[in-house]
Computed example of a mutant assay.
Amino acid sequence: MTELEIKIILADSISNQYPDYIMGIEFPFQFGERRADLALLNDMELTSFEIKSATDRTTRLGYQLASYRSYFDYCYVVCEESNLKEIRANTPKPIGILIASKKGIKHIRKSYKFRSHDKESLCSTLSVSFLRSKSSLKKIKSKHELCKHISSKNHVETIRNWSRLDFKERYETASKLVKLEKGKTINADDILTLTKKSPSNLFRRTS
């Protein structure tokens, strides 16, 4: 299957399992250097999903998953039956594993909950204007420097909460729109809606 096909199956499964979901596709974090294929906010906890189709390489999987653990509360690798053995071999035990097929999503291994988050990574998804509002040093211009300063002055739980609220604000409207427009299943247009930056107001798609 293609990555898009797996995204549709995964997003549809999540939409059925979590009616109040807030979901983002290709969510950028770690100063935009990394992107989660799909991210789910549920009860103010953020779960990432890294998709590895049968044709994807797994040589960088360890590095990718380490960055996920520094930002997200839970992490899953989503693969196909044909590359499950390879994924198992390259995925640390704390990371969950799911299998995607035309029949839906099958749970293979549950993710641990990650608590050792990196404060600068959490800060990296916050806007510069927000970071400046939390900084007492108005002369700092670089976002990296702002994140470093904010991280030195605030507890990890405070910054984690800011990041989750920011995700909610970013994707809540788009998620509501998808719920409003959704047919029997999530489709490619819904995936596109969840990939874009959320509009400020809710409106229906037009053909």
Rank of each mutant, 00 (worst) to 15 (best):
S129A: 14
E145W: 03
R204F: 12
I105H: 06
G62A: 14
I186L: 02
Y171M: 06
R88P: 00
K196W: 09
L61T: 02
H144K: 13
I9S: 11
H117L: 13
M44A: 06
R69F: 00
P28E: 07
I8K: 15
H149S: 10
V156D: 07
I159S: 04
Q17M: 13
N201A: 10
L46M: 14
S198E: 06
L165S: 07
D118K: 11
R60C: 05
H117P: 04
S136G: 02
G24L: 02
I6K: 06
S15F: 15
A11L: 14
E157R: 12
H117F: 14
S207I: 13
N154P: 07
F72N: 00
V78Q: 02
L131E: 03
K110G: 11
A11H: 05
I105Y: 00
L65S: 05
K141G: 09
K148C: 08
T58K: 03
P92Y: 01
M1I: 09
C75E: 04
S101R: 00
D20L: 12
K93F: 14
N187D: 15
G32F: 07
Y63G: 11
A188G: 00
R132Q: 15
S152V: 10
S53H: 02
K148M: 09
Y68G: 03
D43H: 14
R205Y: 04
L61M: 09
Y112A: 15
S53M: 00
I9F: 07
H149T: 08
R60N: 14
T193Q: 09
I87R: 01
Y112M: 11
A66C: 08
I8T: 15
I140V: 11
V128N: 12
E3D: 14
F49A: 02
R132H: 12
V78T: 02
I9E: 04
I105M: 09
H117V: 06
K197I: 12
L202Q: 08
S207G: 14
N201M: 10
N83W: 02
E26Y: 08
D43M: 11
T185N: 12
R60W: 12
I140S: 06
T47N: 09
K182I: 10
S152R: 11
F31V: 00
I9D: 05
D20A: 11
R69N: 11
L84P: 05
L177F: 00
I191V: 13
K134L: 08
K106H: 10
S111Q: 06
R88V: 11
A188L: 04
N187C: 12
C75M: 08
L40A: 03
A11K: 05
Y21D: 01
M23P: 04
S135V: 04
L137R: 14
K102L: 09
S15G: 09
I108A: 07
L40C: 03
T173G: 08
T58N: 08
K184Y: 07
R164V: 08
K196P: 02
Y71I: 09
I87K: 01
S116Q: 15
L4V: 12
K102G: 07
N201G: 04
R204Q: 12
I9V: 15
R164C: 14
F114V: 01
M44K: 13
L46C: 01
E86S: 11
S127M: 10
L146H: 03
R88A: 05
D166A: 14
K52M: 09
A188C: 00
E45T: 12
M1C: 08
K153P: 05
S129F: 09
L177Q: 15
D190W: 05
L146S: 05
C123P: 03
N90Y: 06
T195V: 00
Y68R: 00
A66Q: 15
